[in-house]
Write a protein that binds this DNA or RNA. Structure first.
Lengths: 161, 161
DNA sequence: ACCATGTGATTGACATGTCAATCAGGAGGG
DNA sequence: CCCTCCTGATTGACATGTCAATCACATGGT
């Protein structure tokens, strides 16, 4: 089917498609960066910190096995390990040995960590509203959802076909 | 106008809005990460390298003042400076003293750098097409463009109003 | 000429991210 | 029991990013 019958198979994006791609990815990056600096200035937390604290806040007993936490927020293990070391230094979390598997570690939310998350949460959500939600019409928001789903489905699809 | 007449002002996103936000930002991040690893495996360049080489390739005489380069790709100066140091170590670019302003530096594309960019370019564009353009209908692509524009306009808008 | 001030660029310290190597403890087969 | 293999997690080396401090030179006023 990838025919020689005069139907040229386009492999590269057109100039216009490329422009849209760049606008898209740069806009997403600008948004991320703006949200990060709001979070930073309003709460002294990084997005990584916030994600970890969120997951722990929602967890049973405010504690999670390291690997579950990693899976929950979609991080590689080594990344999490490094990040937890930094957060532990700052007193936001604590690591304990797992009772059922002595290889394992349990990550525990400290009082300080819970408090940091509590006071970061509202301002952060407000920032999401101001910078993202408020910029779009409800229709656009719906379309964003569809587009994200399409992109994700395509990313997850097998390579050749 | 921000009335007290029973019209509650919503400040936080709804659960659904927050979900769309997370899907959006995570999808953009996943795309970025996928493109990065394709670029890496196909050409041993990072996206930063690619952007720098692209700008230099398009520049007159394959050379740019450091600050113009920074402005062109939208980077902070110190970021560029660090990155150029790494690229210079790898032989992709060279830094020369500027003849008209001895504070200044000129960044020059080396033959190696030009070749690296040349061979990275087609595979990278193909990846953009496969991972982004091909995932969307032409209509969706148009809408993406509008949405990126709306988000960007909102980001650039003054804060209070 | 001299000095205050501004500008171009680099530097150092540190946060964050990836990758490969390592380490320690389970789990199963002989 | 012992050996091999698997798995949970950490570590080290290094790339990348931000911020504040610094350095060197240009510039303009006196």
């Amino acid at each position: 089917m990838t025919g020689s019958t005069g139907e040229r198979q386009r492999v590269l994006p057109t100039a216009e498609e490329l422009r849209v791609w760049r606008d898209f990815i740069e806009t997403a990056e600008a948004l991320r960066s703006r949200l990060t600096s709001r979070l930073q200035s309003e709460s002294a937390l990084s997005p990584g910190d916030y994600g970890v604290l969120l997951a722990l806040s929602e967890a049973d007993g405010h504690r999670l096995r390291s690997s579950e936490l990693a899976a929950g927020i979609g991080w590689e293990r080594s990344r999490l390990s490094h990040h937890l070391a930094r957060m532990e230094r700052r007193g936001l979390i604590r690591r304990e040995n797992c009772t059922t598997d002595s290889r394992g570690a349990e990550v525990v939310l400290t009082a300080e960590g819970a408090e940091a998350f509590r006071s970061a949460s509202i301002p952060h959500l407000r920032a999401v509203r101001e910078l993202f939600i408020d910029a779009l019409t409800p229709q656009q928001l719906t379309v964003v959802d569809e587009i994200a789903a399409a992109l994700r489905a395509h990313l997850d699809a097998p390579r050749g076909l």
